[in-house]
Design a binder for these strands. Structure first.
Lengths: 292, 292
DNA sequence: TCATTCATGCAAAACAAATTGCAGCTACAA
DNA sequence: TTGTAGCTGCAATTTGTTTTGCATGAATGA
């Protein structure tokens, strides 16, 4: 059997063989193209059942298109799907879509609308009890380790800074790349590890979750809907939506969550946060004004 | 076999059975969670091969999680993947949930209200023309240097990351602490320096403004009302209010501004941003899933 | 009208995946 | 040390999927 050039797409493949395709093939292709994602997941029998044709026809279609057999065809579909990025809503596609929509009432207004809509949705997805759980764990923690990757790293950095100013021993592990083993040396059951993940979790996140579990430390996680689950499962998880309406890259929603947690923390830690903040302010005012 | 409630997510499923899971299960789950999409496409044998365990272990994992067998588990993964991506919960369900929670004036609700109020005020303080000025300068820039201190550093980090992904030569100077002289070596009139300052400007901000002026580079600044003036004065300044109503430490408002700028940039740079984002996505999809 | 061609379904065979009993192994407790 | 429980891989079995030979029937053209 002749082999399929890895670059050729399903479209070109179909148009090249358009004349050779039969009525049954069309029925199959109709079903197949209607939901390529599903087609990539199912096997030949399921597809042909859905198309109302015999499984043998699926095999013959694959062969007519130049594949060795149905499995080879399915593999091709999968490759097209994951690489070709059918993967619903790519970053650039979403940005483009947004550019179009931004017409009405100006760009900034549209961004603001989106952020507000995302915040409104947050109200429905997270409860005060979720916030309280997080602040309780932080309050009890001996030390707090924070880790995020990519955009989430900006957030973990911010949280580390604010927790430090509130008198907590917080460490942003992203700031200690390359010396992470050193930083994590003393990870103990009394410690809390707080993970931030907004897409597929980076290996470092999973490794840290693993390590934390093995050391019996408490694991908190703040993720979005797009994020794949973290394993081992965190002890406490807040999952927010950064979706559709909002600017997908924005950290507005997760930032609102951490703001609420840090604020709640100040309410339950018997003045520890407030005292530390006050002390920090005083200390800072004594320094020459150009110090951090 | 007990059946899986259709609502339960993989997360809850895993945490519910966390204690029953074995070392082999973890190896499987690690592989599986690293690329759930791929896992949903592959069969039990392929997954277990990739995890380096016997196919039987994949079957047993599925059974331990309460499924009849591996195929049932895979079906569950697929359902999670296709539904999770889409809008879960109907509009009416969300409306109902909202009515229940609308009354309570909890902490999170008040944080959200504050953030929204701040965003509303932003609309009045900044115009699309301001945004456009920034995006124009960025678009023309040969190279973009970013600097923020304290909380603002989280923002400059985020902006640097996003500009880089949009195909611009952006450098977060905070990441190069100690080597700043090195990083700024080639600062030229064609360059843009973007400063972020939300309180009294740190000495480094002022020095950089000074240096940029002496080299005839363009200086942009994003500050808040509390910030003392930057001197020499930046060529373009956006000043936002993070005040009273909102959580004063929050970066929501300045982040909305940078989101708008980056979005506007994509609209005026003739596809440069969109092409770079697309290329980045493609490149990324070719890497093993645990790379950043 | 008849012969040829080709698409299709059927069913059997070949192949691949999933499942399960079994035995070896390890960890832990008595 | 010995026993027990439980995890794991192997291999045989069961179950499911894919492929192919064959028969049917429809369409085309001589």
């Amino acid at each position: 059997m002749n082999e399929i050039a890895p670059t050729s797409s399903l479209d070109t493949l179909l148009s090249r063989n358009a004349d050779r395709l039969t009525a049954t093939d069309s029925r199959l292709l109709k079903v197949l193209l209607q939901d390529p994602m599903r087609a990539a997941i199912e096997n030949g029998k399921e597809i042909s059942d859905r198309a109302g044709v015999h499984p043998a026809s699926a095999v013959r279609l694959a062969q007519r298109l130049g594949f060795d057999g149905y499995p080879a065809f399915r593999a091709f579909l999968c490759a097209n799907l994951t690489e070709g990025g059918r993967d619903f809503g790519t970053a650039s596609a979403r940005m483009a879509a947004r550019l179009v929509r931004a017409e009405e009432g100006g760009l900034l207004a549209s961004v603001i609308r989106g952020e507000i809509a995302s915040l409104e949705r947050l109200r429905l997805m997270v409860t005060d009890a979720d916030i309280r759980t997080f602040s309780n764990r932080l309050c009890e923690a001996r030390r707090i380790y924070l880790l995020g990757q990519g955009h989430a790293a900006s957030l973990s950095r911010l949280v580390a800074l604010r927790l430090k100013r509130s008198g907590y021993d917080a460490r942003d592990l992203d700031a200690e790349r390359g010396a992470m083993a050193m930083a994590l040396r003393g990870l103990a059951p009394a410690d809390v590890v707080w993970l931030f993940s907004f897409r597929a979790p980076h290996a470092a996140i999973l490794s840290l979750a693993d390590l934390a579990h093995s050391q019996n430390a408490t694991v908190l996680a703040l993720t979005d809907e797009a994020s794949a689950p973290i394993w081992p499962a965190p002890h406490h998880l807040i999952r927010v939506s950064r979706g559709e309406a909002g600017e997908p890259q924005s950290l507005t929603v997760p930032m609102a969550v951490v703001n609420a947690v840090i604020l709640d923390l100040a309410g339950i830690d018997d003045g520890r946060s407030l005292a530390a903040l006050e002390e920090y302010r005083k200390f800072r005012s004594k320094l020459p004004p150009d110090w951090n």
